[in-house]
């Protein structure tokens, strides 16, 4: 076991931390803390990508690490902060969320994801294959976070976290996507975020609230 190189150990640790953050996000009620957690997730993802770049000697991974850092640790959290301040939802707290049950479902998802990843990981011969299960689990967890949230901003954060999970999955199976794809995805995320932001203002104009339950009223009977 001691034969595993240190960088590899760090990679595992980062992956585990990402999962930990995914769970923390699942059980976090405050919007402000969610944004902070999201920034941390981005930071650890950056470290993880940089580490795998060093481990596999793939220089283009360094670029994507830098890209991740700029977009996910600096720009997006800053934008989110601005957004919630402008929307006046800084102290928003979600109510009515049975956290133990949610986390229990989360655990089931993790077991499922791990076992799903096992055969794929055995096929893939990259050194990073162990983290695939974790990446898959964080994708599923973020998805669940989007489902369980009622307020719009946490849902968007869930969406962004989902993208983080996908990114990790991509690095761990194929040593990262081609640069063009990565740039495209990064741009997509940014554009998506702006569109969401515009929507939020519109939603609030219409309903005086960001509670997406109000959207149910739009349904014609």
């Amino acid at each position: 076991m001691t034969a595993i190189p240190l960088a590899q150990q760090f990679l595992n640790l980062f992956a585990a931390l990402l999962l930990l953050i995914a769970f923390a996000m699942l059980s976090q009620r405050r919007v402000l803390s969610l944004i902070r957690l999201f920034a941390w997730q981005g930071a650890i993802l950056t470290l993880s990508i940089a580490d795998s770049a060093w481990l596999t000697h793939q220089p283009h991974l360094y670029y994507s690490a830098v890209l991740t850092f700029v977009i996910k640790v600096l720009i997006l959290p800053w934008l989110l902060h601005r957004l919630i301040r402008r929307l006046n939802v800084v102290w928003d707290v979600e109510t009515l969320l049975n956290i133990p049950t949610t986390m229990l479902v989360g655990i089931v998802l993790v077991v499922f994801a791990f076992n799903l990843a096992l055969p794929i990981a055995q096929l893939s011969n990259t050194i990073l294959r162990n983290t695939l299960g974790i990446a898959l689990a964080s994708v599923l967890l973020s998805f669940m976070m989007m489902i369980t949230r009622r307020k719009a901003v946490p849902q968007v954060i869930g969406f962004l976290a989902l993208e983080n999970g996908l990114f990790l999955a991509a690095t761990s199976t194929t040593y990262g996507m081609p640069m063009v794809v990565e740039l495209g995805v990064a741009l997509d995320v940014l554009v998506g975020f702006f569109i969401f932001g515009i929507f939020f203002f519109q939603i609030r104009e219409t309903f005086d609230s960001l509670d997406i339950r109000h959207m149910e009223k739009l349904k014609e009977d």
Binding site: L19, L20, F114, N130, G133, I134
Partner: peptide, 14 residues
């Protein structure tokens, strides 16, 4: 649940 997750992680990452 965190403690349970720890065991799962242990099995996945060894």
């Amino acid at each position: 649940l965190l403690a349970v997750l720890a065991i799962l992680i242990h099995y996945l990452l060894g």
